[in-house]
Design a protein around this nucleic acid. Sequence first.
DNA 1: GTCTATACCGAGATAGAC
DNA 2: GTCTATCTCGGTATAGAC
Lengths: 189, 189
Amino acid sequence: MAKTRELLVETMKQLLWERGYDATSPNLVLERSGAGKGSFYHHFKGKKELAIAAMDSRADELSEEFDCLVAKHSDPLAAVAAYMCQTRDASKGCRIGRIVQDPSLEDPLLNAPLKRFFGEQHGKLTQLFQQAQTESLLSDALSPEQLATLAISALQGGFVYGRAMQEGDVVNDATDSFITLLNTQRLAE
Amino acid sequence: MAKTRELLVETMKQLLWERGYDATSPNLVLERSGAGKGSFYHHFKGKKELAIAAMDSRADELSEEFDCLVAKHSDPLAAVAAYMCQTRDASKGCRIGRIVQDPSLEDPLLNAPLKRFFGEQHGKLTQLFQQAQTESLLSDALSPEQLATLAISALQGGFVYGRAMQEGDVVNDATDSFITLLNTQRLAE
DNA sequence: GTCTATACCGAGATAGAC
DNA sequence: GTCTATCTCGGTATAGAC
């Protein structure tokens, strides 16, 4: 099949979500996907190259999801709230943040897709907060950049804290709390 | 030496911080500590048992650090601010949160020390926020529990985000932003 | 209590046939 | 493009001497 490559990428995306990078072996990818070793090393130089392709694909997917969601809201703060308060499950972990702590991710090549994703995400959130302040919907007690950093951190940290507590719901408490606190900064019109 | 056991625990604590659980091999612990294989398996049943001892020790150490810091401040919000705004380095990761995402940590036995630590930490922060509200220093727009969850998440997420961006300072931006936002909830006396 | 030698397994990758 | 056989290395642990 000409689609074996795509199948390997999708399988890797799933396994990176479930187990991270270091704990995902080529053998596991092959077993899960049904492909053979020959195919794997024909399409990719090795595990690292496949993982980068998988992370890039995942980053694009999440970016697109974010853009779709933002497009539905004319109020920038409503867009942020809709993004943050999606129902998540900390026991599964973030589809992309899950990977960050793996020791191998200190390799700049492997880390690049993550850096790109979080950088772009920060930029988009900053824009939304900026817009809210320009439209006088939001106090300027914090800069748009600070709010974006805190939003991303609350979400990622909620995943960490929820996983440690073995309570998948806790990540939603973290994001909800952020939004509640953010709403105290809304300005009356 | 009678202290070999303690030496192994300290070495494991350091390696758990640097590399997490899965990526730390017994061999590495032995090489780093100078101990031999015989000692290792004499004092511990295996890697898992050593890691649990190391995590328990680390959790106690961090708990004590927290208590010391709190004891220095009569104002509960000043205590929270002092805790959150310590200078940290995301490239090194949290001494205990660093470990949470490792696949092996799904084992309840391995996870227990983390669960205990984060549970206790949440309790202590909740108490501080509770006290601040009781003393009318803090608005009650959020519950003490919500604020504690957000504080922990902002810190842990700051580590994740900072590591992804390969900028160790970012974790401090996250905690500073939280404190700035929290300060908008202070009540005039 | 500590040492060295040994065993077993899976990770990651290559070789060469089809 | 895909398959199977094979290779090397390190992780994890045990055995038995000192």
